[in-house]
Amino acid sequence: MKAEQIVEAVLFASDAPLRPDEIARADESLDEDVVEAAVAALRRYYLESERAFDLVELAGGWQILTRPEYASYLDRIDTIPRPSRLSGPALETLAIIAYRQPIGRVEVEYVRGVGSSGVIRTLQDRGLVEVTGRAETLGRPLLYGTTTHFLEHFGFDSLEDLPRPDELPVVLRDREVPILPEEADDEAGGQEELSLEDPE
């Protein structure tokens, strides 16, 4: 049995991304390097033979996914599940939690300006967010963070794939009509790391 076929069989049958070390457990002839080589070979083969699917790096692992250009065909078949989409408030809340994790509900609400317990609950139910601990502050509130499923849902390999705060175009700040030059500079300098810091 060739390593490539074992890896292919394992990835074909799995319904979640698998890390190379997880795939390697399938056979003693496999280790992480062999798996990585097999994955690379399979991807070359799929490309050359024009398969409708590919191996995709997702949430730190590999998964077989169809190529995006076939989405419209799949949408016409009832037995193929449609991926669910999140609401605006859910995306907003998730964005805050993703950048500021671990973060408590009150801090999320301060950024959004609206009560968010219901949205957080929904995100928890959908496995996108989980309780990661408790803050040491008064009342020891729960702290939330994103899950592996969050990465899968958005097609990220890791949290590093999230856009970096300094890459984001921030229209308000870049408007550049500062009244007090020093003050504006201070603000601009302080905003760089803003979304990774504590609000207080």
């Binding site: 907003e92 998730l94 958005f154 921030v170």
Partner: peptide
């Protein structure tokens, strides 16, 4: 404003990901 921008990016990422199926 920054969070809103991130939310938009997440929405786009979600849409792209939704075009690939298991």
């Amino acid at each position: 404003e920054q969070i809103r921008e991130v939310a938009h990016r997440l929405e786009r990422a979600e849409a792209d990901r939704a075009r690939r199926r298991t």
